[in-house]
Nucleic acid binder design. Structure first.
Lengths: 196, 196
DNA sequence: GTCTATACCACGATAGAC
DNA sequence: GTCTATCGTGGTATAGAC
């Protein structure tokens, strides 16, 4: 087998560049409004060449969902070393507040993608639900570690609070809403931990 | 002036039927995915005739926003007679829970519309924000009546909780999430009222 | 006011040269 | 593997007969 790099192998990262561009443009403009040409332009790849990597637009959607899952896993992994569940939950809130300017402009990446795909009759095969589960399941584990028997309910409320405030921050183009709600959630977690 | 009804005056309600159809189809499929032909079919009006009433798709969007504002005003008016702010807030929660099956299938009508329009560079001229303000301003008034100095913050958290749980119920196609979170919000309101 | 026919354009996707 | 040219579809919007 000859050196595949010297031959016509695809430029490394081209596929990755396309997915990253798709994730960005989907987030900024929405999936339905985005054209293949938009993605190609954002990735600086000629339109026709795109089809060598992705046959349909929905293949981009699937790839972007996988990317989001990876990002979520990274955030969770970064929080993991913290000593206790309350600290970890508050670190998650802090990471949300950190992203407040993006949220105010485009909403939560996961939430706005889910909202759009949920309108489809098949909800894109339940992929958005699987993505959202990553966050909820993690939160449930933290609340359970706090000794809460209602951990499942609290995890849903926790993520719902984030999704809701992201939508409002986006609607009002006001990152300050993320800060205020983040502080409220942090106090709430402290109360729950105190009672535990 | 001759009897305008006997002459070629537009069938009464035709414009209203178009707006109602647009509201329904936008809610079910999303704005961007919906075509003028979809709206015409849902309203049982020939496609070509639609343009006599609405020149552009965005005029439909504006009309649908106005419709939503009217529905919201009706809900608020129906709650108004209740004796106290805590009762009124809980009645609002109850109205959300009542709509759980629709929310599980299509999300919150206001929220999913806002999420989609927020992706536009101009956020549709801030119309979604005005719509959302109707709810938040009302809630702020109720929390203020409860004697809460942090009424503004609580109102945002209250509406965010609803928007968030609607998105999650939609993503998981699970109306039960609305019931659980509704009960949680009701307990929360009772606590706030007790401390007031 | 109502409706048909159609202009026009943008998009997704493909064929095939290089 | 890369890219251009293009096909077919489906959408918005208009012209104009009735």
């Amino acid at each position: 087998m000859t050196d595949s790099v010297a031959q016509g192998r695809p430029k490394i990262g081209k596929r990755e560049r396309l997915v990253a561009a798709a994730a960005r443009v989907f987030y900024e403009q929405g999936v339905e409004k985005t054209t293949i040409a938009d993605i190609a332009a954002a990735a600086d790849v000629p339109v026709g060449n795109v089809y060598y990597y992705f046959k349909t637009k929905d293949q981009f959607v699937q790839a972007v969902i996988d990317t989001h899952a990876g990002v979520l896993a990274e955030i969770v992994a970064g929080i993991e070393p913290l000593p206790g569940p309350a600290e970890r939950l508050k670190a998650m809130v802090a990471s949300w507040v950190e992203q407040r300017d993006l949220a105010a402009r485009y909403g939560c990446p996961t939430g706005s993608l889910a909202a759009e795909l949920d309108k489809r009759p098949d909800a894109f095969g339940g992929e958005p639900a699987r993505l959202m589960s990553l966050l909820i399941d993690w939160a449930r584990g933290q609340f359970a570690e706090l000794g809460r028997p209602d951990a499942a309910e609290l995890a849903v409320a926790f993520v719902a609070a984030y999704q809701g405030i992201s939508l409002l921050a986006n609607t009002f183009r006001d990152p300050g809403l993320m800060v205020t709600e983040g502080a409220r959630l942090a106090r709430w977690i402290d109360e729950l931990a105190g009672r535990g």
